[in-house]
Amino acid sequence: MKTIKIQLLVNNNEYEVSVSPNETLLDILRERLGLTGTKRGCEIGECGACTVVMNGEAVNSCLILAPQADGSKIMTVEGLMRNGEYHPLQQSFLNHDAVHCGFCTPGMLMSAYVLLQQKQNPTETGIKQAIAGNLCRCTGYQQIVEAIGDVGKKGETD
C-alpha cells in the first residue's frame, strides 16, 4: 500500500512518519512512537480509552486516520508530567483514588485536561459531559468527577 508522509507535534516533539492511509492516529502513537500510555479498548470510538488532545480538542485517536492528523499538535498522557512533577490533574486523581485498574485513566485525564483548558472551574454537569464518552468498568466514576472538580476549583488548569 502507498505510504504518506505526515508530520506530527506530539508532546512538543516533532515527528515525521510514513503511514498507510488506513492506519489510525492511535496505531501511530502506540506502535510507531511507542507511546503506549494511550490505550486501545474498542477501536471504534465507543470506550474513550484512546482519547488524546488534538489541536486543543479531545478526540478518540482510533477514529482519526493518520493522514488526517498531518500537521497536528497532539498531546498524550505522557505529555502531562512537567520536569518530573505531576500535573495537578494527576495529583488529584491519586489523592481521590480516581484510578482503579488504570486502563481508562489516560483517556479520562485527556478529556479532563481539555475541559479545564476550555472552562475554568467547570460545574459538576460540565465535568460529567466532558467524560461522558470515557467508559470505566471498575470505579463508580464519582471519585473521577471529584478529582477533576478539585483541580477546577483551585484554578490549576495547566
Binding site: G34, T36, G37, Y86, L94, N95, G102
Partner: peptide, 21 residues
C-alpha cells in the same frame, strides 16, 4: 493511603500486557 502504583497509572508508564512490545 494513595495507591503505591499510582505514578505508573497516571503517567502512562504502566505497562499492561497489551502494551508489551
Amino acid at each position: 493511603l494513595s495507591r503505591i502504583d499510582g505514578y505508573d497509572k497516571v503517567s502512562g508508564t504502566a505497562k499492561f500486557s497489551f502494551d508489551i512490545s
